[in-house]
Nucleic acid binder design. Structure first.
Length: 661
DNA sequence: ATAGGGTTAG
């Protein structure tokens, strides 16, 4: 059979006998009405030769007729390597595990299972079919393990989330003295990300990085880009930046990886800046849809509506507006910039939708406080034939939580397992704790945690602590924070929350104790920041901001506003100030909050009638919330504030959150 | 001899 195969005929099976020769000669006419040989019928007689049967199987595989191919296989005593390969690929492609096992069996009986080429293909097949055990078995049973076989198993294990195993295997491979190749590293680096344990980053990642440099791969674009991505996923923006900066060759993927690194690690300014640099510095590289997704994400994070609109324009000009991930990120961008109606419009214009597009829409309504609409969209998604993903539930449960729809949320949570066979993750439990906790059903929230079937992570305890803050439950807060201090000792936010709760309860001694703990561990509270986009420029504010040239003017106006509004009924919420000071001092501290400065800046610098849009990196404090309501009423301005969790839309002295947040 | 790799939305 191989004798017939010359390089040119690899793609087209070789003409083997006259009947097929006819077919090959008249291929054009053969297409619409295939000849009887090509369709080859179940009636393949026993008299057909081995070569013929191989050919038939190959044709059937290429046409996706797996079942018939297998039927012929069962009559075929001696399939070629190529035939097996096509069968394996076909099984993988069609998600046919049972058939794949049949092929594997056949191949073992034939003694072909020691062929490292086929072993590689089998491992890939099992990987695609989510049968990692079988992939491992193929590896174990293959005696002649070429680097292809090793790499295939690395890839399979990484995709299945067994990162640690890959690292161990890789080390074993090195010990045994098998040389790795450039492909090995892209898989092993990804495995570092998928591996568990605190030490994964410092030990494994750096270890592999060192090997890569020692082997002289520092000029290899694929490997270096993966390295950038690895550091990005570890949250080490600095390391990613260094690798990126030292790359001798960069392509669109490398740039996109670095932009995504900034966007995903809370540095949206830097993401936009790098995108600008890419556009200016590289003339042969065009950003692609993947790049734009990260850029849009950054716009959304900054609530930079004007920037976002510009990018949207660019997306349209480049014709990237029909790509699903791009549209979904446009929906999210508009919603996060406060333009819920625009988000809905973009969504409406899609001709094709997937779960992610729906999830974008659902969470958009969620952060704007429209819980019912979110649920409605969730149901519409199901009616349209798309099954919810775990993220769909995160989105809809979050929406219920923001809107105080406790019963709906509980029903949703129950339906997860019952109707959709989706088992709740830590994320979902955190949503439920939040939902119940906000609604002042703290006992129920605590019960949920007790009854969890998986280990409650910091997200879950954090939700509980946040709810304790809202409802001033010192006792439960102490329990939650004790767990949190164990689980994430370096997260300053948890200490601050606990101190807030003690302060509200006027337990000054305890406040000082927590603050000392913070100092002893050399942790710093994340400073509150707010920002506002005015005429496509973004201005940021911090409570100790002396850089803004208008700062004096802002302070003066704020003081005047607060005095006037006190006469209208504004009462400064001094209870949230951590220090045991007199009330005048406390008021002064409150007036320094960054969102008040941003609102005032907006009042001065935007045109009347324009909505003022503010973004804040933390949760909105009660005092700012209260004062902003008054400001919206007495200055007749609409003010939109997005905090970490959701939107607050202030109009005529009321907020869209109905004081529930 | 052949084969395979990096960035993506919620």
């Amino acid at each position: 059979m191989f004798a017939f195969q010359s390089p040119q005929t690899v793609q087209q099976p070789p003409p083997l006998f006259s009947k097929h020769l006819e077919c090959a000669a008249t291929r054009s006419s053969c297409r619409p009405r295939p000849c009887s040989f090509c369709t080859l019928n179940p009636a393949i007689s026993t008299s057909t030769t081995t070569a013929d049967k191989n050919h038939v199987i190959q044709r059937l595989c290429q046409k996706g007729e797996l079942k018939r191919a297998l039927r012929v296989l069962s009559q075929e005593p001696n399939p070629t390597q190529r035939t097996y390969e096509l069968l394996i690929l076909s099984c993988a492609h069609q998600g046919a595990l049972a058939e794949g096992l049949d092929v594997h069996c056949h191949l073992s009986e034939n003694g072909s299972d020691q062929d490292p080429f086929l072993a590689t293909k089998l491992i890939n097949m099992y990987s695609e079919l989510d049968a990692i055990e079988n992939a491992r078995k193929v590896f174990d049973e293959t005696r002649n393990r070429t680097i292809y076989v090793w790499n295939a198993l690395f890839r399979a294990l990484t995709l299945a989330g067994h990162g640690n195993e890959v690292i161990d295997l890789y080390r074993r491979m090195k010990r045994v003295g098998i040389p790795s190749d450039r492909f090995t590293y892209t898989f092993v680096l990804k495995a570092c990300v998928a591996s568990e344990g605190v030490l994964s980053f410092s030990q494994k990642g750096r270890e592999i990085h060192a090997h890569i440099l020692r082997l002289g791969y520092e000029g290899h674009v694929h490997i270096m880009t993966t390295l950038v991505d690895m550091y990005a996923r570890f949250g080490c923006v600095k390391c990613a930046g260094i690798v990126f900066g030292e790359m001798s060759q960069k392509n669109v993927v490398s740039w996109s990886a670095m932009i995504a690194c900034y966007a995903k690690n809370g540095m949206p300014f830097e993401a936009l800046e790098l995108f600008r640099e890419m556009m200016l510095k590289t003339h042969d590289l065009l950003p692609n849809s993947v790049t734009m997704v990260s850029v849009l994400q950054a716009c959304g994070a900054l609530a930079a509506l004007e920037q976002g609109r510009l990018i949207h324009g660019y997306v349209l000009r480049r014709g990237l507006d029909s790509i699903l991930p791009v549209i979904s990120s446009l929906v999210t961008m508009y919603a996060r910039c406060g333009k819920l109606d625009r988000a809905q419009q973009v969504f409406d214009k899609m001709d094709e939708r997937d779960v992610v597009s729906w999830n974008s829409l659902i969470s958009s309504y969620g952060i704007h406080g429209f819980g019912e609409v979110a649920i409605q969209n969730f149901n519409e998604m199901i009616i349209s034939g798309i099954s919810p993903s775990p993220i769909s539930f995160v989105s809809v449960l979050g929406a219920c939580s923001h809107a105080g729809l406790v019963e709906d949320g509980k029903m949703m949570f129950d339906s997860m397992v019952r109707e959709h066979r989706i088992f709740p993750s830590v994320e979902h439990y955190a949503c439920m704790v939040d939902l119940l906790g906000r609604a002042n059903r703290l006992d129920e929230a605590a019960t949920i945690i007790e009854e969890m079937r998986i280990e409650p992570g910091p997200k879950v305890w954090g939700s509980l602590l946040g709810s304790c803050r809202i409802h001033c439950n010192v006792e439960l807060a102490e329990r939650a924070s004790a767990r949190l201090f164990e689980l994430e000792p370096t997260n300053a936010g948890n200490y601050v929350l606990l101190a807030d709760i003690y302060a509200e309860a006027k337990m000054w001694h305890e406040v000082r104790r927590v603050k000392k703990l913070l100092e002893a561990r050399r942790l710093q509270k994340v400073p509150g920041r707010s920002w506002i986009e005015v005429k496509r420029k973004i201005y940021t504010f911090a409570s100790v901001d002396e850089l803004n040239p208008q700062i004096e003017q802002l302070h003066a106006l704020l003081l005047k506003l607060s005095m006037e509004l006190k006469e209208e009924g504004y009462v400064p919420q001094t209870g949230i100030v951590h220090y045991d000071l007199d009330s005048e001092e406390k008021e002064r501290i409150l007036l320094g909050h960054s969102e008040k400065l941003a609102v005032t800046f907006g009042l001065i610098n935007s045109t009347k009638g324009e909505t003022i849009r503010i973004t804040k990196n933390l949760r909105l404090c009660e005092d700012c919330h209260s004062l902003t309501k008054f400001i919206s009423k007495y200055t007749k301005r609409e003010i939109l504030v997005r905090d970490v969790n959701r939107f607050h839309y202030f109009k005529d002295g009321v907020c869209s959150c109905r004081d529930y947040w």
